[in-house]
Nucleic acid binder design. Structure first.
Lengths: 250, 250
DNA sequence: TCGGTTGGCTGCAAGTTTGTGACAAAACAT
DNA sequence: ATGTTTTGTCACAAACTTGCAGCCAACCGA
C-alpha cells in the first residue's frame, strides 16, 4: 500500500505504450498498468505503434512490446524502434524459450517477460526500468540549442555547423549524426558499435564496421585542421574513436 | 561468435562486482562474466562488498547481488547500497518466489534473476542493463574516471595517459591493459601469469612468459623517469613485478 | 670468483587494424 | 523519371602492434 503510493509519486505522469494484437490481453495489461498509476496508450501493431510514438503529444516513456504480432514480428519492431529511439522496451512473449529471450535482449530490449506473468512482478519490472531511465537527465544534450567545441559550433535545430572562422560547413545526415554521437560522449572511447547505435540513422544490424571508419574519415576531412594528424577525433587502435576537445552547451 | 566479439567491444572496461557467499557459485558466475569480456571482482558478503565499492581503485559499474547471504540478507544490502549509490544492481536468488522478486525490484534492484539461470540469458541481462546505464551521462558511471600515480594520470574512459609534465603519452592496447592491471593492484607482487590473465585482450594461452617482460619493458620506457633504475615498476626476481607508487582515484 | 639462472632489451617478421579512393546502390530532389 | 547527393562496401597500402629469438647484463648461491 505504502509502496503503491510512493511508487506512484516516483513516476508521475509516466506514459506507457502497449503494443499487443490480442484484445483481451491488451485490455488486461492496460488495466494492470493503469491501476498502478500510469498513463497508458495502446497499439495493435507496428503501424499504430509508430503513429503513437511519432504523433502523440507526449511520446511514451516506455514501450511494452508483444513478440507475437500479426505481420512484422516484435523483434523487427524492436529493432526498428531502437533505430530511432532509446525509449526503454519491455518485450512480452508467450514463448518461454531462452534463445528467444537472449535475442530480444541483444537487439535492444531492456527486459523480457514471459506470459503468463505475475501481475505484481510485471508492474515491478516496469517500475524498475522507469526508475533507471527517468532519473537520467535523458536528452540533456537535446535541450541545448547549440554545442560548442574547439571553436566550432553545431546548431542542433538547424543542423548547421559553423567553423571557427564563421564559415558554414555542410554536413550530410550521417556526418551530423556521427558528430552528435561524439559530442554527446566526449573524452570517452566509443566503439564502432556504440557509434552506430547512437548515430541511429537507418543503420540495420548488418552494416559493417568499416562504414563507421569511412564516415569518420569524411567527417575528419571537414573538421580537422590538420588532416595528417587528427586532433579532434582520435583513433584508439583496437577499440574505436575518441572525441578529444571539451564540449560546452549553449 | 560474431555476437560475442561485438558485444565484447560494446562494454569495454566494464567492471562487475559479484556478491555471493557460495564459493562454487561465485566462481561459476565470475568465470561466466569474465568469458563475456568483463572485468570481475568478487565479495563474499556485505562487508566485502562495501569494501570493494568504497575502496577499490575502480568502483564497479554493476553489482550482481545474491539474496541468500550469511548475516544480512541481500535485500538489506540492496537497500543500503541504494542509499549511497545508483550503481545498477542485478539480484540473484535460489527462490523463484514471485513476492521475492517483487520486493527485490521494489527496493531498488534493476533486474532479478532466479537460479538456476541460463548463462546466456544472464549475460544478456547484464549487457542490457549496462547498455542502458553506461551510455547515459550524468550517472556516476559516466563521470570521468582517472587514476593518479607518481604525478601521472590515466583517464580510463579516454584511454589517455598524461605525464607529470602534462604531455599525453600514447599507449598501445596491451600496454594500457598491463598498466591498468598494475594500477588495480599496487604494492603487490604480480606474477607473469597474473599479468597475462589481465592483459589477455589478444594474448593466446600459449604465449611465453617473456612476452610479459617485453611489455613491461616497453611500458617502463614510457613511464619510468630514470631508465637505468626502475622506480615505478620494480622487478621481483623469481616472482614477477610490483607497482611501487600509491595509486589514487580522482 | 664462478657457473648457472633470470631478466632487459633489440631487431624482426607476422599479423592486425586503419585510412581512403573508387564504385555502386540507395535515397533524394526536381 | 532523371540527375544529384549520400552512403555502404571493397580493395589495398600504410601504419601499428606484438610475440619471439637471441644476446647481454644482473643476480644468486656456493
Amino acid at each position: 500500500m505504502i509502496q503503491e503510493r510512493d511508487q506512484r509519486l516516483l513516476d508521475p505522469e509516466a506514459h506507457l505504450l502497449i503494443v499487443e494484437d490480442d484484445g483481451e490481453m491488451r485490455a488486461l495489461v492496460a488495466r494492470l498498468l493503469r491501476e498502478a498509476g500510469f498513463r497508458v496508450s495502446t497499439a495493435r501493431d507496428g503501424r499504430e505503434m509508430f503513429e503513437v510514438i511519432n504523433d502523440a503529444i507526449t511520446p511514451p516513456d516506455l514501450v511494452v512490446l508483444d513478440v507475437m504480432l500479426p505481420g512484422v514480428s516484435g523483434f523487427d519492431l524492436c529493432r526498428r524502434l531502437r533505430a530511432q529511439s532509446q525509449v526503454p522496451i519491455i518485450m512480452l512473449t508467450a514463448r518461454a524459450d531462452e534463445t528467444d529471450r537472449v535475442v530480444g535482449l541483444e537487439i535492444g530490449a531492456d527486459d523480457y517477460v514471459a506470459k503468463p506473468f505475475a501481475p505484481r512482478e510485471f508492474v515491478a519490472r516496469v517500475r524498475a526500468l522507469l526508475r533507471r531511465t527517468m532519473m537520467d537527465p535523458g536528452d540533456s544534450v537535446a535541450k541545448a540549442r547549440r554545442l560548442i567545441f574547439a571553436g566550432w559550433s553545431l546548431d542542433l535545430k538547424a543542423r548547421e555547423l559553423t567553423s571557427p572562422a564563421g564559415v558554414i560547413v555542410d554536413l550530410s545526415g550521417a556526418e551530423h549524426d556521427l558528430l552528435l554521437a561524439f559530442l554527446e560522449h566526449p573524452q570517452r572511447v566509443l566503439s564502432r558499435e556504440q557509434l552506430m547505435e547512437v548515430a541511429k540513422r537507418r543503420m540495420s544490424v548488418d552494416t559493417s564496421d568499416r562504414a563507421v571508419d569511412v564516415q569518420v574519415s569524411r567527417l575528419r576531412r571537414k573538421i580537422e585542421p590538420d588532416e595528417t594528424s587528427p586532433a579532434i577525433i582520435k583513433t584508439v587502435r583496437g577499440s574505436g574513436y575518441v572525441f578529444v576537445p571539451p564540449v560546452t552547451r549553449e
